[in-house]
Computed example of a mutant assay.
Amino acid sequence: MSGDVAVLGAGMHPWGKWGRGFVEYGTVAARGALADAGIEWRDVRSVVGAGTVRGGYPGYVAGATFAQALGWQGARVTSVYAACASGAQAVNTARAQILAGMADVVLVVGADAAPKGFFAPAGGERPDDPDWLRFRVLGATNPAYFALYARRRMALHGDTPEDFALVKVKNAAAGALNPNARYRAAVSPEQVAASAVVADPLRLLDICATSDGAAALVLSSMEFARRHGASDPVRIRAVSTVTPTYPKAVLDLPDIATDSAVAVEPSPMSFRGSIARAAYEEAGIGPGDLSLAEVYDLSTALELEWYEDIGLCAPGEGAALVRSGATALGGRIPVNPSGGLASFGEAVPAQAIAQVCELTWQLRGTAGERQIPGARAGITANQGLFGHGSAVVAVR
């Protein structure tokens, strides 16, 4: 298809709390992706960096920061910030440059050095931003936000804390097999139940950590890939970065989406569902064609929402799906075979890129002990602040 671009290389810096700067992490990931692709740094004609607001000025200009760290060689640079979707927006920017003929080979890099504890709002006071308001006025930090989603599932669908715990057990088992994961140990349902309550009903092991880490990709045109000797590379077939439609799941107080109210009809689909649908439509595939999915498990309960939003099951059936074992390694449709954020934690600019790295390794058949046999197509999905979200479809 004319919209395909090749994934020639994937690289990561292991997640953890290493106490060093994001530039060091990103440089390690970038060099790993270049080596994996068999591409010399001097042959890269464009660098797209996913920005980090916690990295100071170098984080705002991440594309130039990584180009400088690797050694100025004249490449075009672009810096992208889109909250948790920053990495996917960077992939989308690189893809657009390739399809427009602006560059044959593009390096995409995202890295972060996260503070201890949950993320506080960054970027100054924003009294017209509902996320800033929930932090500052309500005191509803991210764990409280995740807990409201969990309580809603319990009320609407009858989900239980035991169902949520099964997600952590599943993802920890996969993460134990991933050398890049921060947490590499199996977890039992009893351990989840015994961990401290953070925001009822979610316990410590239901919620992802904040982490340092990095991920990088080398993308190219299909023609360049063939010339480079990659006759059957993993291909990115779709990238969705759509915004919500009215009525939104989150009200933008005090400006309650008045423009959207007159622009479009109310959507029967959730924002997360619309992200996935746009990716499926662009790729020309559906949920039944998937071999795996990498979704944004900020909490165990939120992963169950994603099952429904990306079409793996009907609304309200996410808990039954995880109980059936279908989303575990060896199941019908493994979700988060990397171990997910449960095993990695959040390194915001890197995580959507890391999801594509996992798809790449799975579709190549090089994922080691966590390999999904015969993997041919996968989707990534995440949702971030301020109407940012993304989904990427990769095929082989």
Rank of each mutant, 00 (worst) to 15 (best):
T160K: 11
V295I: 14
Q97W: 10
L219Y: 08
G213D: 11
A62Y: 02
G286N: 10
G63R: 04
A263M: 09
G124K: 06
R184S: 10
R332A: 15
I39T: 13
V192F: 00
A174S: 15
R370C: 14
G286R: 09
I353K: 02
A194W: 01
L302K: 06
R226G: 09
V77M: 13
L251Y: 07
A83V: 14
F164S: 09
G56M: 11
V28G: 11
S220A: 15
F164A: 06
D43N: 06
R31P: 05
L205C: 05
L107H: 06
A90Q: 06
Q383E: 05
G339S: 02
E162P: 00
P233N: 09
L133R: 15
L107K: 07
G318R: 02
F344P: 02
T93G: 02
S343K: 05
V348H: 06
V53T: 13
V23C: 09
V47F: 07
E346V: 07
A111G: 14
T327N: 10
A67T: 12
V392E: 11
D289H: 03
D309T: 11
A209Y: 01
D255K: 15
W72F: 14
A209P: 07
T210P: 00
T380C: 07
D259W: 01
A75K: 06
G311K: 07
L312V: 00
V105N: 12
G368F: 13
R182M: 04
I285V: 14
R364V: 15
R95L: 02
S390G: 10
F66R: 02
V105R: 10
F224V: 09
P121I: 07
H388S: 06
G339C: 05
R184G: 12
A150C: 09
R20W: 04
W132P: 03
V169M: 01
G59K: 08
L107V: 08
A165Q: 01
G365H: 12
A100C: 12
L204H: 01
G63N: 09
S220Q: 08
I256K: 15
P201C: 10
F344A: 09
A199R: 00
V23W: 10
E190S: 02
A263F: 07
A67H: 14
A199I: 11
L219E: 10
I98H: 04
A215V: 08
R227A: 08
G374T: 13
G229T: 13
L8D: 11
A181S: 12
K17Y: 09
T360W: 12
C357K: 07
V108K: 00
R134E: 11
R203M: 08
